[in-house]
């Protein structure tokens, strides 16, 4: 083989190796970008789930108030049943607002009631009740638990029960 041919072959091999390395680099970069985009998408879904959960725990329809002073992390028991009915009459409105979400509320602790007083209507059948269920598919599920005071305004001053709000957001 002539010297010129050897040099030409050498250059070709160098070019080939260089090309292969560029290809590997591009593949690695694009796969990294894809992973990054998927991660961003997952984080955005989690952010949406957080926003929904925040919206539900501060629903004005359920908030406790005394002389127009709002109490944080509190739900008035007597507002639960009317709220459930209101949801069943305006499903589209609330579903649009909350998305694929399910909310369950549990009365964890309440002192024994006087004999003449019945359990609050919302918890008459069971201590754990579904507030609403808008689940319609969704593959990923984020579950949030929030402790809430459940105010029973049949007593003066109102009794406060310990409640456990479970919010499941499906994305």
């Amino acid at each position: 083989m002539k010297k010129a041919q050897i040099q030409l072959m050498e250059s070709t091999v160098v070019m080939f190796v260089f090309f292969i390395m560029i290809m590997i680099g591009l593949t690695v970069y694009s796969s990294h970008q894809n992973t990054r985009l998927e991660k961003i998408e997952r984080q955005m879904a989690e952010q949406r789930a957080i926003e929904t959960a925040k919206k539900i725990i501060s629903l004005p329809e359920l908030e406790c108030s005394n002389n127009n002073a709002k109490t944080m992390d509190c739900i008035e028991i007597q507002k639960l049943e009317p709220f459930k009915q209101r949801i069943s009459q305006n499903i589209l409105y609330y579903k649009k607002d909350f998305g694929d979400t399910k909310a369950t509320i549990k009365m964890v602790y309440a002192p024994a009631l006087p004999q003449t007083v019945q359990k609050p209507a919302f918890f008459l059948n069971a201590d754990k009740q579904t507030l609403f269920d808008f689940k319609s598919g969704g593959t990923s599920q984020k579950t949030f638990y929030f402790p809430v005071s459940l105010w029973d305004k049949r007593f003066v001053s109102e009794w406060s029960y310990f409640g456990w709000l479970k919010i499941e957001v499906f994305t």
Partner: peptide, 23 residues
Amino acid sequence: NLAFNFMLEQMPSRLLQTMTETT
């Protein structure tokens, strides 16, 4: 895990507040 972290951060103060007010 943003959602779990959010719940974790909120939990202690909310739970203590709710618990101390329980009748």
